[in-house]
């Protein structure tokens, strides 16, 4: 048991360390001067191999390592921007739709139905067509329109828990409903579910950011993206996306976001397993 726990704690620490390192590095924007100095006469899509000044080489007139870190930052920003409205609206709708029948419940249920009625990607394209394309706004919108996924799961959980005796007992002992929802339902019985949805959403947001960038939707001045690199790869160099394997330099920008995503996944999975193990111990179950 002890060995198992230490392995999980190790995973948690490793995930947290990689995550913090990438986010901090990306957010500070600090890089050695030698990395930032690129020969100006170099053709735009020529790849220069690794050297002492540029550990991963140069491509698109940029140091590849800088590109990697910035693209990681872009991915994390994308994930976080989509995640916040997703969690806020999803939890709110889930709680409201799990309440006893009434106006709030009906409103929440109809909102979920309406949001579910439209394909998410089409809504994003419509938004781009109607308003100026801004990647941040689009990712926020993506978070909002994905919220029903979380809300429906929470509604089911609340429906199930409302039949449990200990919830009846809480009501009978006069605990306010928001305390019951926050403490007894959300935190102690639904946190695995919220966590699982969180990392699924994080990955989906990064994928969506890459897809939108590939389609040249959104502002892309300040950072690089996997989707944007692939777009360059297909348009500038004339490579087909379906011709595999693509040159390493076109796929490498995906490496760090993927590593970052892996670290987040490790972090969340470890946390989920840790909670699961704790809950099992609390319930007195060995398996």
């Amino acid at each position: 048991m002890k060995r198992n726990a230490s392995r999980k704690t190790g995973l948690l620490t490793a995930g947290l360390a990689v995550y913090l390192l990438l986010v901090l590095w990306g957010s500070t924007g600090w890089f050695p001067k030698s990395w930032q100095q690129v020969p100006s006469r170099m053709p735009i899509y020529q790849y220069s191999p690794p050297s002492r000044e540029h550990p991963l080489g140069v491509f698109f007139q940029q140091d590849l390592l800088i590109t990697f870190v910035r693209s990681t930052q872009a991915s994390f920003v994308a994930g976080t921007i989509a995640l916040l409205p997703f969690l806020a609206l999803g939890t709110l709708l889930g709680i409201a739709s799990g309440l006893p029948a009434g106006f709030a419940q009906a409103l929440a249920n109809r909102t979920i139905d309406v949001l579910n009625a439209f394909p998410r990607f089409v809504v994003l394209l419509l938004y781009t067509g109607l308003f100026a394309a801004n990647l941040y706004h689009m990712l926020m919108l993506y978070g909002l329109i994905s919220a029903p996924k979380l809300a429906e799961l929470l509604r089911g959980r609340i429906d199930q828990l409302r039949r449990e005796d200990f919830i009846d007992s809480c009501v009978a002992l006069g605990l306010p409903w928001w305390v019951i929802v926050r403490r007894h339902i959300l935190w102690h019985h639904s946190r695995h579910l919220i966590l699982a949805q969180t990392f699924a959403m994080f990955a989906m947001a990064i994928f969506m950011e890459a897809s939108l960038s590939y389609l040249n939707l959104g502002t892309r001045e300040h950072y690089q993206s996997w989707g944007l690199m692939l777009n360059y790869a297909t348009s500038v160099s004339g490579l087909s996306l379906f011709r595999f394997p693509l040159s390493a330099q076109f796929n490498l920008p995906a490496a760090l976001p993927a590593l970052g995503l892996l670290s987040v996944t490790l972090l969340l999975v470890s946390l989920s397993r840790y909670w699961e193990q704790q809950d099992r111990l609390k319930m007195g179950r060995m398996f």
């Binding site: 200990f166 007992s169 007894h184 102690h188 809950d279």
Partner: peptide, 12 residues
């Protein structure tokens, strides 16, 4: 309520 064990939150 009936059945004291079930009226207590198992995770707390």
């Amino acid at each position: 309520l009936q059945d004291a064990h079930k009226t207590l939150n198992p995770f707390l």
